[in-house]
Design a binder for these strands. Structure first.
Lengths: 200, 200
DNA sequence: AAGAAAAACGGATGATCCATCCGTTTCATT
DNA sequence: AATGAAACGGATGGATCATCCGTTTTTCTT
């Protein structure tokens, strides 16, 4: 039987070989460190730091962007869980607002998230799937808030991702040293935008 | 007499030699084209396109950032003029708002401006000077609006540059094709933020 | 457990990109 | 026209990128 047909259409790829899984994990770990430090990712350098051949890195992650996405997976899953909890919330506006607080905060504390959330297209299929889930949940939150008459007219779903990423961008640009303070700045900017977004 | 002492403290450098001025202009023209196209700037490539030696490019602009700043000069000067006109405006809020509209629009129509306005430090002394002028004029606009009681408490001068650049970032992220439409999106996002900023 | 097939590995290496250095040319000055 | 200073160009050494292929490791089969 052709392996291609076996996995065709599946999101889950065949399980990795033991050594491959180990190396992949090592690479991601190094990637996480580099992303956190704000260093621009160089795949050759990642290989050296992970004590792994260059080709191994390139096989797993053809581009730095792909590695960043792999690093972002945990954060994306956490956001999806938060969105799932939010859709359970009774009050549409509270659900909407709390989730936005969460997503801004996440972008500021996890440097891998911003590039993934603001990238037009994903490099890894796994990321695309997570982004789809997140997008679908967020759409619900947005439409519920809109249906409850809480959103000013003229605001569309397509505006939300840019606005959220713009807020994170602004907060990152603010000359705040300490992460705590930066989170507060992000929260502040979000409040400004939410004020502007809300029906008055 | 030591040339250093002659020019010490002056912003204006000794006039360029004829050939140097010509080459500098050529290089900037090519740079303008590349920036407009959104291409990442490679100094060797710029040299080739400008029919000039690599060293000539590096002598004038040690980094891509420096070339971008040179390209941005016209836009910066236009913004300074707009700010000067705005401080003449009678109504503090109108002056403030109109200038923000202008600066957002400028960032969206001139791709060289964003990196310069959001960069923490300038690569060329000329840019630093222009940014200082702009900053000083904007401070006046901001403080007048604040003194008129039009700004919500909690908003500081240090928030304004991040917020403005964030708005431009958001608009650039929006999936709008046509520049006209993108300008409208930027204007829209600015309205949202201004709503949130204003005392109610 | 042994052997074979498949999967993954590593790092040498050619290709590409970067930026400096220095011999030559052009310009301004007298 | 001569001289010194300023600017020029591009060859080139150094760094980074990413592929290719001979070797090793794992998994599967019998």
């Amino acid at each position: 039987m052709d392996p291609l047909s076996v996995y065709a259409g599946k999101v889950t790829a065949p399980p990795l070989r033991k050594d491959a899984a180990r190396n992949r994990q090592r690479i991601i770990e190094i990637g996480r460190k580099l992303v956190a430090d704000g260093t621009t990712i160089q795949l050759n350098e990642v290989a050296r730091a992970a004590s792994v051949g260059v080709a191994t890195v390139y096989r797993h992650f053809p581009t730095p962007q792909a590695l960043i996405e792999a690093v972002a997976v945990d954060g994306l899953e956490a956001l999806i869980q938060a969105a799932e909890r939010a859709v359970e919330q009774d009050d549409p506006w509270t659900a909407f607002r709390d989730f936005l607080v969460r997503i801004v905060d996440a972008q500021l504390s996890d440097a891998a998230l911003s590039p993934v959330l603001s990238a037009p297209t994903a490099a890894l299929p796994g990321t695309a799937h997570l982004l789809d889930q997140l997008s679908s949940l967020f759409t619900q939150l947005f439409e519920r808030a809109g249906a409850a008459g809480q959103l000013a007219p003229g605001i569309t779903l397509a505006d939300m991702t840019p606005l959220i990423c713009g807020i994170a961008f602004s907060a990152r640009m603010h000359p705040a040293i300490d992460p705590q303070e930066r989170a507060a700045v992000g929260r502040h900017y979000l409040d400004v935008v939410l004020n502007g977004l809300r029906t008055r």
